[in-house]
């Protein structure tokens, strides 16, 4: 007994050391870029150019944030981003739930047809150009609605919710039906409250996708600055920074800073923080739901 204990403990210690060192490295590698960006965003723009900002600002200032949020296009982008996130999430959750309910009914004659129609979309899509022309034909280009309609139903979410509903006890629905409840009432009063956990997952996925997306702005609404989103504004900052070499960025920053402006690096950092913070604040609270939802998604039929 004691011999086994000592033999195991040496290996135990080594293995534990490896485990903890690996995980601490992972935490550092994951968090450092974020923390560094936060530090730069709160640091004086010109001072940041000297380098050496790691986890804490050297010359603390909220100037970058005040400057950025005072810009009308950023303010507008915040509004558009919030609107598209809220609207597509609300519509997305409701649509996914109602359709998932109908195709979860085993006796529904269109069940197989609708499921197949949606599953195919997981694997085949029209591609960039045909999609562009169809959306243009539908009048969705240069419009806010191109952010909403294409995004409300995704086959993956549909399958997760359908699987979840199929796992509910059938007796609940039966007894409501015997009590004379209509199908829509059953859906609203019985199903909706029961599937809240999985709807939380769908809401999270839809909201995050809406908040993060920039490509649809880039393709469908490039000429409409009033329809720009935060992520797209950040993408533009990144793209312009990428075109400049570091030395040019430095020179430009110097010039800009001389004119009492924020530097490109500071803009980038500040925008990054603004885009990231809402997500970083929300996802930890939905963790238990999405971990469960993801494993559900793997269970097919």
């Amino acid at each position: 007994m004691s011999r086994r204990f000592t033999r195991r403990s040496t290996e135990d210690i080594l293995l534990d050391a490896f485990v903890y060192i690996f995980l601490i490295c992972l935490i550092v590698v994951t968090l450092y870029p974020f923390l560094n960006t936060v530090a730069v965003s709160f640091n004086d723009g010109l001072d940041s150019l000297k380098g050496g900002i790691y986890l804490w600002p050297r010359k603390f200032t909220t100037f970058n944030y005040r400057m950025l949020l005072a810009r009308p296009q950023i303010y507008q982008a915040v509004k558009v981003t919030l609107a598209r996130t809220v609207l597509s999430t609300a519509l997305g959750v409701f649509s996914t739930a109602i359709l998932a309910y109908t195709i979860s009914r085993r006796e529904f004659v269109l069940r197989k047809f609708i499921s197949t129609l949606y599953v195919i979309t997981l694997y085949v899509n029209g591609g960039l150009i045909p999609t562009y022309f169809v959306y243009r034909y539908l009048g969705l280009t240069n419009s806010f609605w191109v952010y909403i309609w294409p995004a409300i139903l995704h086959a993956f979410n549909l399958i997760i919710v359908r699987t979840y509903i199929e796992g509910l006890p059938e007796s609940l629905i039966e007894s409501a039906r015997i009590d004379g409840a209509g199908e829509f009432t059953i859906f609203l009063r019985i199903i909706m409250p029961l599937i809240k956990p999985v709807l939380a997952v769908v809401a999270l996925f839809t909201a995050v996708a809406a908040w993060n997306s920039w490509f649809d702005v880039f393709v469908y609404n490039p000429m409409k600055p009033e329809l720009s989103t935060l992520a797209y504004e950040l993408q533009k900052v990144l793209a312009s920074a990428q075109q400049m070499s570091t030395s040019m960025e430095l020179a430009m920053s110097r010039a800009a800073a001389g004119a009492n402006e924020v530097t490109p690096r500071a803009i980038r950092a500040t925008m990054t923080v603004i885009v990231t913070v809402p997500i970083a604040c929300i996802y930890p609270f939905l963790q238990k739901y999405f971990v469960h939802g993801l494993t559900l998604g793997g269970v097919k039929e």
């Binding site: 968090l31 908040w211 993060n212 992520a231 950040l234 990144l238 990054t272 885009v275 970083a280 930890p284």
Partner: peptide, 17 residues
């Protein structure tokens, strides 16, 4: 919890980092 964070942020943010 920390390890999930990068998954949820936009590639625009990630590319900046």
């Amino acid at each position: 919890t920390i390890s999930y964070l990068p998954y949820f942020i936009s590639w625009v943010v990630a590319a900046n980092l």
